[in-house]
Each structure stands twice: as structure tokens, then as C-alpha cells.
């Protein structure tokens, strides 16, 4: 799987550079206390178990702390998980659940967090899976059943055309 320039740059600067013996990127540090919400999502399509885990600690209406974990072999999934974890911290449960992961336009804030104008397709698919996972962790926290995760379109591996240019 080819990696888009946007994902490559974000991963290198904000995730890979923060890794080392005893150094874990902030979004991937284990929570200090047991989570109140937890969910896994398939779809990272890396070389591992194809599972990303999302854990959070919430209050009645807000996410207080959150973390992602897994083999995270896929750089795009690392990036999506990192951006999503940063986004949900301090955010209301209702706002997180209001987004539809099937609606690509709803993902605009996450694409912006990548720092570029283009919407790389590898990030699009991983954001969709990550958002579905995060939302199920929120539902778990709220005592609601998890929703089935849709099958999102696989990313095109070479074409990084900007959908806004179409």
C-alpha cells in the first residue's frame, strides 16, 4: 500500500519522532485508570490483527481522556487514530456521535488536521474506520450497544487526487 505524502509527513513528524524506548506518542499512551468506554474496529489492514482499539474515560456528557492502541502497522491508521483521539478529548458525546462516518464531508476537520489541502484517500478510509471505532467506544461508555461498522470503500493505492478538484 502506497502512503500519501500527507500521511507520510504527519506520521514522520508527529508520531514516529515521538517514539522511542519509554517514549510513546501522547495519543497512544495507556490510560492511567481503567476505561469507561472501549471498542475495537477492524480495517487498518496492516500486517497484524487488523484491529485498532479505542479506550476512553468519560463523564456523563463528555470525553475526558482517550487513547488508541494496537499493532498499528498502517501509517494511515496511526494518523487517523492520533487525530481522532486528539479531537474527542474534551468533546461532548453528542457531538462525537452526530457525525456519520459514511459521509466523507463530515471528515473535513480531520483532513484539515493533516495540514494539507488535499484529501488523501488512504486517510479517508482510515478516518472512517477510526471514527466508527471511536463512536462505538462512546456508545460503550454511555451503556449503549455498539453499531455494526460499515464496509468502507478501500483506498485507491496510487491515486491521491484531491476530491475538491473534481
Amino acid at each position: 500500500m502506497a502512503v500519501s505524502p500527507e500521511v507520510r509527513q504527519y506520521y514522520a513528524e508527529k508520531i514516529f519522532a515521538a517514539m522511542g524506548p519509554g517514549r510513546v506518542p501522547e495519543s497512544f499512551r495507556p490510560l492511567a485508570t481503567p476505561p469507561t468506554g472501549f471498542a475495537t474496529v477492524e480495517g487498518c489492514r496492516g500486517g497484524g490483527k487488523n484491529l485498532t482499539e479505542f479506550a476512553l474515560i468519560g463523564s456523563e456528557g463528555t470525553v475526558l481522556e482517550a487513547s488508541a492502541a494496537c499493532g498499528l502497522c498502517n501509517p494511515a491508521m496511526y494518523v487517523a487514530a492520533d487525530i481522532l483521539i486528539r479531537w474527542i478529548r474534551g468533546r461532548s458525546l453528542a457531538e462525537i456521535l452526530a457525525l456519520d462516518p459514511r459521509d466523507v464531508s463530515a471528515l473535513a476537520p480531520f483532513f484539515e488536521a493533516l495540514g494539507g489541502r488535499r484529501w488523501p484517500d488512504d486517510a479517508r478510509e482510515k478516518f472512517q474506520y477510526a471514527l466508527a471505532g471511536v463512536q462505538n467506544a462512546v456508545r460503550n461508555h454511555a451503556g449503549e450497544p455498539a453499531l455494526p461498522v460499515p464496509e468502507f470503500d478501500e483506498p485507491s493505492s496510487r491515486d491521491w487526487a484531491d476530491p475538491t478538484d473534481e
Binding site: 514516529f16 517514549r23 500486517g47 497484524g48 502497522c73 498502517n74
Partner: peptide
């Protein structure tokens, strides 16, 4: 071992 699954994955692939 590595903190980066991507690195381990790249070696294997």
C-alpha cells in the same frame, strides 16, 4: 521489537 508497528510490518513485507 519497535514502538512502530509500521517499521516491523515493513521488514516483514
Amino acid at each position: 521489537t519497535s514502538p512502530s508497528g509500521a517499521l516491523i510490518n515493513a521488514i516483514e513485507r
